[in-house]
Design a protein around this nucleic acid. Structure first.
Length: 642
RNA sequence: GCCUGGGUAGCUUAGAGGUAAAGCGCGUCCUUGGUAAGGACGAGAGCCCGGGUUCAAAUCCCGGCCUAGGCUCCA
């Protein structure tokens, strides 16, 4: 019998007989570990403990105390759901039921469910958990497996595809229930402590729009009921951060029924947007961009040579219509217009880079089901910019933008992820050009020392893209800033500059948006700050609370004499001090100045901040100076009372 | 676009065939207050829109619009 060697997490090696399984390896290490083994992680994949090991495998043993145990538990919870479902709806056909980051789902066919049905299924699932059924793996021959799934085309397809190479097919069984499954699973349904079905939705088989719509049930499971309760609580807290809720409460914006996907900024929201605009204008100045403005309305012709027409119009994403026998459209992007501004005169190599920036308002007809508050809209304004550069300027230009983005995001305390998106199916231009452009972006990311994920095939049609992604309250990722390198549009529009050699040369275009769009960026920061904006962004920076109506005069005096440069309101409703304070907290006002007879006599203020810190006898000038500095430095939170 | 929910006062929600409710907010009055909700009274609702069933529809049925979470798209 020949031997194989596997590598354990600490780097040590373990000699095993050929054909040894994960469980065998665990027993080899120690009988205790052997007994505790739930599954294994082999070369990074979670697998059943009965899996055979191969020479050189990197092996990790999963026990109930491993991080991966929860994934295994949830995989079993998906089976418990399926079992409960089959007890109540024997006609339901099962497809796939994997674990996910925070639970599991199961896609089923042939049964219609609504949310009331979920409660019933959940009760049945708890019965199955109480029955503490042993979960056992067994195998069937291919022929037998096909027989079992005689009327389940989905499982048969899995047998034909995923399990095509396997002669013996892995099944799991618990009580009367069995399911085609490669595992791994826990040993008994009783190991699940907390179980909940969360929602119901549709999902296309194999994720393909042309396939059948399946019913997907999302659920989650934990080892204990307490953990489940914590999970539910975390979800409720996430709802509290929802930018749509905060946006309404703080009167920042609205998206009325008559303008689906198009935000209306209210005065408070517009204050924030204007601060963002001012900041980005400053940054664009520093980066050497000249601001332009180009129209939303153009003839559709504009986008034909660039390729936008094919991409956006054909997919129904562009708002376009016939008018007087001519097709017009609203711009889905700003680049074609900027390219024309560039093309309007002849530049020399000495002029490059030529950079245009614009807070450009674009419209795209996003699918109705995709709209989501400010995060996915139909009308949006990008802090867009295009640099027209020489090939030898690529590296510096990209680095400058990445630096600026890094600097800007620091003021928002945002955790962002960099993505490199590469050539997709709808791409225009040659492979060679794409490789060159993608390489340049990679170089820039590495030389900035930035970690990034590569997303194959996700780029815009005209060039590879660095996407800067942020996460919303419920964990969805959204691209905000972006840098794209484009050799194609200059080619298609025949853009040129005159080189040192007096010949015409092709410029390269860098497309970039620092915040992305004001809509999405605001949505992200509302959720990130939970409405407690940094003072420089806060719609109301200071609220003066007179202790009694008699002190309103002093409040006004303070506002006029010292605080005229800031966004200050006076709370003049005849409320108790406690009530005024509560209201100011609810409104997320950074600073409250409480002024009564004592302060009025001494000419001072009492300062309270939204973190519930307070100080009496404060000199107004000191406060004013600090406020100025806090705003100037774009501090991410209130600091006067630190 | 597809699947499953939802749309009732400015906001959050209750009501589920028989005269439309509550809390917050808003108005008036009383109270003039000291670091997270003082009191009284009052105004405020085409119950998303259009059709249908019914003696009677916010409620049941059909269609549409909007919206939430998924799916699919997506710069």
């Amino acid at each position: 019998m020949s031997q194989i060697t596997v590598v354990l997490p600490d780097g040590s090696e373990l000699e095993l007989e050929e054909g040894a399984t994960v469980e065998d390896a665990a027993y080899e290490i120690g009988p205790g570990l052997g007994r505790d083994t739930v599954a294994g992680v082999v070369d990074g994949d979670l697998v059943d403990k009965a899996s055979e090991l191969h020479e050189g495998a990197k092996l990790e043993i999963v026990t109930p105390s491993s991080d991966e145990y929860l994934d295994v538990l949830r995989h079993s919870a998906a089976h418990v759901f399926a079992q409960a479902l089959q007890r109540l709806y024997p006609e339901a056909r099962l497809t796939i039921g994997p674990w996910t980051d925070d639970g599991f789902y199961y896609d089923i066919y042939g049964v219609e469910l609504d949310e009331e049905d979920l409660e019933e299924i959940e009760d049945e699932a708890y019965d199955i958990i109480d029955e503490d059924l042993d979960i056992e793996r067994f195998e069937r021959s291919r022929d037998e497996a096909f027989e079992v799934y005689e009327d389940n085309e989905f499982k048969r397809e899995i047998l034909d595809d995923e399990a095509a190479d396997e002669e013996s097919i892995s099944f799991y069984q618990q009580g009367e229930f069995e399911d085609l499954c490669k595992g791994p699973h826990v040993e008994s349904t009783g190991e699940i402590g907390g179980f909940a079905l969360l929602s119901i939705s549709g999902a296309y088989w194999r994720g393909d729009e042309d396939n059948e719509m399946l019913t997907r049930v999302y659920g989650t499971a934990f080892e204990t009921e307490e953990e489940l309760e914590e999970f539910i609580q975390r979800r409720e807290e996430a709802e509290e951060r929802d930018h749509r809720k905060i946006g309404r409460e703080m009167d920042l914006f609205s998206i009325p029924e008559h303008s689906p996907g198009c935000a209306h900024y209210h005065p408070n929201g517009m204050t924030i947007r204007r601060e963002l605009e001012d900041y980005i204008r400053t940054k664009n100045d520093e980066l050497g961009y000249d601001e332009v403005w180009t129209p939303e309305l153009n003839k559709a012709e504009l986008w034909k040579p660039t390729g936008h027409y094919d991409t956006f119009k054909e997919s129904g994403e562009m708002f376009a219509w016939e008018q007087d026998d001519t097709e017009y459209g609203l711009k889905p992007m700003n680049c074609a217009n900027h390219a024309h501004v560039f093309d309007d005169q002849q530049y020399s190599y000495r002029d490059l880079p030529v950079r245009f920036s614009e807070f450009g308002t674009c419209y795209r007809n996003e699918q109705s089901g995709e709209l989501s508050g400010l995060l996915r809209v139909r009308g949006f304004t990008q802090d867009d910019g295009h640099a027209f550069i020489r090939k030898d300027q690529i590296r510096d230009e990209i680095l400058a933008v990445l630096d600026a983005i890094d600097d800007i995001y620091g003021h928002f305390d945002l955790d962002v992820q960099y993505k490199l998106e590469t050539k997709g199916d709808d791409a225009v231009g040659s492979d060679e050009i794409w490789e060159q452009a993608t390489g340049a972006l990679k170089d820039a990311l590495s030389s900035e020392g930035l970690d990034y994920d590569v997303e194959e095939g996700e780029a815009a049609f005209y060039g590879p893209k660095i996407g800067i992604n942020a996460v919303d309250a419920i964990g969805r990722e959204w691209t905000i800033g972006t840098v794209q390198l484009d050799f194609n549009i200059p080619e298609r529009l025949d853009l040129t500059y005159v080189g040192e050699d007096n010949d015409e040369h092709r410029p390269v275009m860098v497309h970039r948006a620092l915040l992305g769009t004001f809509e999405r960026f605001m949505g992200i920061i509302i959720e990130h700050f939970k409405g407690k904006f940094p003072t420089w962004l806060a719609p109301e920076q200071v609220r003066i609370l007179p202790v009694s109506d008699d002190n309103i005069g002093y409040a006004k005096q303070l506002q006029n004499r010292y605080l005229g440069d800031f966004r200050v309101e006076i709370e003049d409703r005849s409320w108790t001090v406690g009530k005024k304070i509560q209201q100011a907290h609810d409104d997320n006002v950074p600073y409250m100045l409480i002024v009564g007879d004592d302060e009025e006599e001494a000419g001072t203020i009492s300062v309270r901040d939204r973190q519930e810190r307070s100080r009496d006898d404060v000199d107004v000038e000191d406060f004013r100076n600090h406020l100025e500095e806090e705003i100037e430095s774009k501090a991410t939170d209130v600091t006067f009372l630190e």
